[in-house]
Nucleic acid binder design. Structure first.
Lengths: 214, 214
DNA sequence: TTGACATGTCACTAATAGGTGACATGGTGC
DNA sequence: GCACCATGTCACCTATTAGTGACATGTCAA
């Protein structure tokens, strides 16, 4: 038996629902970045947001709705511009291996700096929910758009599969780097080790046959 | 208030500790394979094993000890023989790209058929515990041994990094295939899609410079 | 035979999870 | 002024979690 508190100690701010909703959504990001998916739960989010959990049910219908709302709220994947940074390509030159190599290095850097994205990628491996599904779809669409333009610049190689293998490799090594220091004797926690990895990926890239220049 | 049961309904089998221990350890594998790491807990394991959870504390000291015991109990990683299956190599021939390609395909198949290993790999991305640490160490040692012999057969390429990238790619795509149907437009749930992936990886492999034959 | 020990059963605690019902309060439209 | 409704607070529920203490019973050694 608990002794009831004096009700209404804090006067609520009326008409503050949008503010409250945003506090809740931001709390999802906070928890995800700091503790990872394991700590995502109604009670914990409510506590971090400084909000009563009942409001999560009222405003988002529950955890699933909240996650969906969260996934609609931010930039979780490298943009096309980010991937093409440092590349001058006007569409008229012949495509070179260096063109792909730069994108690969940009991709690697982009993934590594997004701690939140890494958490979401981890989550996607464990379970499906409204959020992971929505994000995966968006990503799939963006990637397909990007690589569609490259297919006929190659000498018949399967650009989708090549991209899949290499980006998967970089993603996995990035995710793994949080929980382990070295893999195959490579230090995943310093720049030197990552240079080895990216260099290796670029070397592999050289196996792709490009279309002969016209 | 619960009504106390008649004590000792089931007569216990005396001297059955080894049997009980084994039941508990097997339960870890069962739960891991069927429900994944999320369901690994003292209560659940005890229930699946059909055993009182107190015995887990007594015999293994808790969850950590149990996981360590489990990790010592099985084959979770492809053996050297499995990787080299279908390859005839007596150490005297010059090494070829086909040699590496076959190993890559063997590795891909080996990972894909080990549902339990996949769960453990997922787990390693989420947390560290006695079990994941022990398994990762064993794996690291085996891999280093295997590739050490290859380094000087190559024309100066970083075999450790290349292996890391490609196997990481295959692992990630395998793990991802449980929760998603297509990635980059590739169907991860049928053989055709996996043929595209393995072919792409083999194509990449062709970028590695081999040592000129003497 | 007796006593120590290994094995196993059960009841219990404390913490935390997800989820719901009741209610106070203040702004808004009538 | 009055009734409605959005906002917010709180107390409660049931399930499940990890972990511990108490005790019954069969086996084995002395």
């Amino acid at each position: 038996m608990k002794t009831p508190k004096e009700p209404m100690k804090k006067p609520r701010n009326l008409k503050s629902a949008p503010d409250t909703k945003s506090k809740i959504i931001r709390a999802v990001g906070k928890v995800l970045a700091k503790q990872g998916m394991r700590e995502i739960g109604i009670n914990h989010i409510a506590q971090v947001a400084g909000v009563d959990k009942v409001l999560i049910y009222r405003y988002f219908g529950g955890l699933a709705g909240l996650l969906k709302a969260y996934s609609d709220s931010g930039e979780f994947w490298p943009t096309r511009e980010e991937l093409l940074a440092g590349i001058t390509f006007d569409g008229t030159q012949a495509i070179t291996h260096a063109f792909f190599e730069q994108q690969l290095r940009n991709f690697s850097a982009a993934i590594q700096k997004r701690a939140l994205t890494q958490e979401i990628l981890r989550w996607e491996l464990i379970e499906q929910n409204a959020m992971t599904r929505a994000l995966a779809e968006t990503r799939e669409r963006q990637t397909l758009e990007l690589i569609a333009g490259y297919q006929d610049m190659l000498g018949g190689a399967d650009i989708a599969a090549i991209t899949a293998v290499l980006s998967a490799g970089l993603i996995y090594l990035t995710l793994r780097s949080k929980s382990v220091d070295t893999l195959n004797g490579i230090n995943l926690k310093d720049e030197q080790g990552w240079k080895r990895i990216e260099d290796a990926a670029c070397l592999l890239l050289r196996g792709i046959p490009l279309k002969a220049q016209p």
